[in-house]
């Protein structure tokens, strides 16, 4: 009886000891983006759908509706609403009931509402040959599911290669940093690096491809600390290869 009890304690403690999530590196996963834009004067109306497969068994799906206005030649500002599924947060690392082990909640079917505002200053980089545009996009976003507020900073550089009758293709490079305002234990919660190209098939349709490298930090919550008496931070790193389909409705 004692042996059985000792074996049981050994087994359950082995499971319970695995309370810190493993660093995950899912390799290179696929992504796809659909964008539909309509412009009227200085106002842009947009709809985006993004489909990203990150770690195994988690799909990030985002539906975004937004509007942007060009206030000055070099400045646009916008507001957007986004419904997202498959998001992961620090508090999704829980002790499951049966078997009692620490797991990440499956959030693929959990919808979360986001609202954000964005500021987009842009300028032509005239000392470079050809057409180069530098941009520093700043977004402030609120997740109404868990009241998380995030600042996203995204500097970027785009080269537009001009053909005989107008733009032929774009090459772009962007870096994006997520700074949590009221959650997490790290200053930089996520970092993304984008490299991509866009082909000007027509005024209405522009297909593109992109490669992304990302890094995310998952930190222990106060609830975890109360249970386990320790903090952790672990890292998820990955790459994505994606295609984008961009439509501009005249």
């Amino acid at each position: 009886m004692i042996k059985i009890l000792l074996c049981y304690l050994l087994i359950t403690s082995a499971f319970a000891d695995h309370h810190i999530p493993d660093d995950e590196s899912p390799g290179t996963t696929p992504a796809a983006v659909l964008r539909v834009h309509h412009k009227r004067g200085n106002t842009l109306y947009r709809f985006d759908y993004e489909h990203n497969t990150e770690v195994v068994n988690r799909t990030d799906k985002r539906y975004t509706l937004g509007v942007r206005y060009r206030f000055f030649e070099h400045l646009k500002a916008g507001i957007y609403y986004s419904k997202r599924y498959g998001q992961r947060h620090d508090e999704d690392w829980i002790l499951g009931p049966n078997p009692p082990k620490w797991i990440w909640i499956d959030t693929d079917s959990r919808g979360e509402n986001f609202v954000g505002i964005e500021l987009i200053p842009r300028m032509l980089v005239e000392f470079l040959p050809g057409t180069w545009i530098a941009e520093f996009r700043t977004l402030i976003e609120r997740n109404f599911f868990n009241d998380n507020n995030t600042i996203k900073l995204r500097p970027g550089l785009t080269h537009i290669y001009m053909g005989k009758s107008g733009p032929l293709f774009n090459l772009f490079f962007q870096y994006e940093a997520y700074i949590p305002l009221n959650y997490g234990r790290e200053t930089l919660y996520e970092q993304w690096l984008y490299l991509g190209a866009l082909y000007h098939w027509s005024k209405i349709f522009k297909p593109g491809v992109f490669f992304t490298m990302y890094e995310k930090k998952w930190s222990s919550t106060d609830a975890f600390f109360m249970k386990k008496g320790e903090h952790f931070t672990n890292t998820e790193k990955g790459n994505m290869i994606g295609v984008s389909l961009n439509f501009t409705i005249p």
Binding site: R35, R68, L124, I133, T158, S244, N246
Partner: peptide, 13 residues
Amino acid sequence: EDAYSDPLDQDYD
């Protein structure tokens, strides 16, 4: 109208 294509006004994302 084609003359007024402004690269700073184009949104690609």
